[in-house]
C-alpha cells in the first residue's frame, strides 16, 4: 500500500501477546466432532497459514474465533480478549473475509463495502479507491450480478481497506484469477510490513508457501503438524536428481535414501530419489566418486508435505476407487 499509515492501530498493538492463541479447542455438532483438541497460535506481525483439506475444521475454528460459534471446551484468546464475551470490542480490531461470500442482492458492491467498513468503524476513502482500482472491481454493479470472484473481491476490499490489527482470511482467493491472486499477495505483504497479523486459511499450498511465516496443518479437527516453514522442511526429504558417469544403482543402500529410480540417458545414467534432509551431508560425500555431471536438489514443496500428511487418506480413496 502506498498510503502511509503512521497512525496504524497495529503500531500501538501490545507486543508480545499473540494475536490468536488457541489451546485444546473442542467443538462438536451433535455426534460430529468438528474440532478435536486443536492448538493454534498467530504471533503479532506474522502471517500464519492454516492448512487442511475441505472439512478439516478450518472454518469452524475461524467461526469460534469470531464468536459466531461457542467452543465446547479449551481456551481461545483473540487479541488478548475472549472472542465470545468481548466479540464487539474485538471485532473493531479485526477484519474478516469469508470463504464463501454472499452479499445483499440489491446493494451494489460499493455500498456493501461501505456498509461493512462503517460497521467496523470507518474507512480511509483514498485507500478504498486504491484497492478498488488494484482489484479492478466495478463498485456500481448490484451484488447479484457479480461473479463469485467479484463477490470475493468485495469482501477483500472491505477487509483490506480497514485499519485493523488482525486479518482473518478464510480461503480468501477462491474464485480469483492468478493476476488478482498476485494483487492479493502483494496487499497482504504490505499490511504485514506495517506490523499487522494475518491468519490465512487455505487449501492452496502455493498461496500459503508464498505468504506465510508459520504453518499449521490440520485434519479431522486436529493439528497434524505446525511450525515455521523452515522447521517443517527440516522434517522432510528433498528430491534429488543426479546424472552420473558411473551407474548409481547402489545409492539405494545409503541410509536416508528413498524411492531410487535409475534410467539411462544420453549423458549417462540418471538417478532420481528422495533423501532425508539430515542425511544430505553423507549423500554429498558419497556422490563424488560417481562422477557427477549434473545435480539438482529441490526443497520439498508444501505439496509434498501435504501428501505426506494426507497420503494415507488419498491412498485409501484410490483403493476404494479401484474396487
Amino acid at each position: 500500500m502506498t498510503t502511509p499509515t503512521t497512525t496504524s492501530r497495529a503500531a500501538v498493538a501490545r507486543a508480545g501477546t499473540p494475536a490468536v492463541e488457541i489451546h485444546d479447542l473442542r467443538k462438536t455438532f451433535g455426534a460430529f466432532t468438528a474440532l478435536d483438541g486443536l492448538d493454534l497460535t498467530v504471533r503479532q506481525g506474522e502471517v500464519a497459514g492454516f492448512l487442511g483439506p475441505n472439512g478439516a475444521g478450518k472454518s469452524t475454528t475461524i467461526r469460534v474465533l469470531l464468536g459466531l460459534l461457542r467452543a465446547d471446551s479449551g481456551s481461545v484468546s483473540l487479541l488478548g480478549g475472549d472472542p465470545w464475551r468481548d466479540a464487539v470490542a474485538l471485532h473493531r480490531r479485526l477484519a474478516y473475509v469469508p470463504g464463501d461470500v454472499n452479499l445483499w442482492p440489491n446493494l451494489t458492491g460499493g455500498e456493501a463495502i461501505d456498509l461493512l467498513t462503517r460497521l467496523r468503524g470507518g474507512v480511509d476513502p483514498a485507500r478504498r479507491t486504491l484497492l478498488l482500482d488494484r482489484f479492478e472491481l466495478d463498485p456500481t454493479k448490484k451484488a447479484r450480478t457479480y461473479s463469485k470472484g467479484n463477490r470475493q473481491k468485495v469482501a477483500l476490499v472491505a477487509a483490506l481497506a480497514s485499519d485493523v490489527e488482525l486479518l482473518v482470511l478464510d480461503e480468501p482467493t477462491s474464485g480469483l484469477d492468478p493476476l488478482m491472486e498476485a494483487v492479493f499477495t502483494e496487499c497482504v505483504r504490505e499490511l504485514v510490513a506495517e506490523g499487522r497479523s494475518v491468519l490465512l486459511s487455505s487449501h492452496i499450498l502455493a498461496e500459503v508457501e508464498k505468504l506465510c511465516d508459520t504453518v499449521t496443518i490440520i485434519r479431522a479437527g486436529k493439528v497434524v503438524q505446525s511450525g515455521t516453514l523452515e522447521e517443517l522442511r527440516h522434517l522432510t526429504r528433498s528430491a534429488v536428481t543426479v546424472v552420473t558417469e558411473r551407474d548409481a544403482t547402489d545409492l539405494g543402500t545409503l541410509p536416508g535414501v528413498h524411492d531410487l529410480l535409475v534410467e539411462p540417458t544420453d549423458d549417462g545414467p540418471r538417478a532420481r530419489f528422495d533423501v532425508d534432509n539430515d542425511h544430505m551431508a553423507g549423500l554429498v560425500t558419497t556422490l563424488g566418486p560417481y562422477g557427477v555431471r549434473s545435480l539438482h536438489v529441490a526443497p520439498p514443496s508444501l505439496e509434498e508435505l501435504f501428501m505426506r500428511h494426507y497420503g494415507d487418506e488419498l491412498e485409501r480413496i484410490d483403493t476404494a476407487g479401484a474396487l
Partner: peptide, 8 residues
C-alpha cells in the same frame, strides 16, 4: 456472518 464479524 460478515455483519456479526464487525463491531455489531
Amino acid at each position: 456472518e460478515p455483519v456479526l464479524a464487525t463491531a455489531t
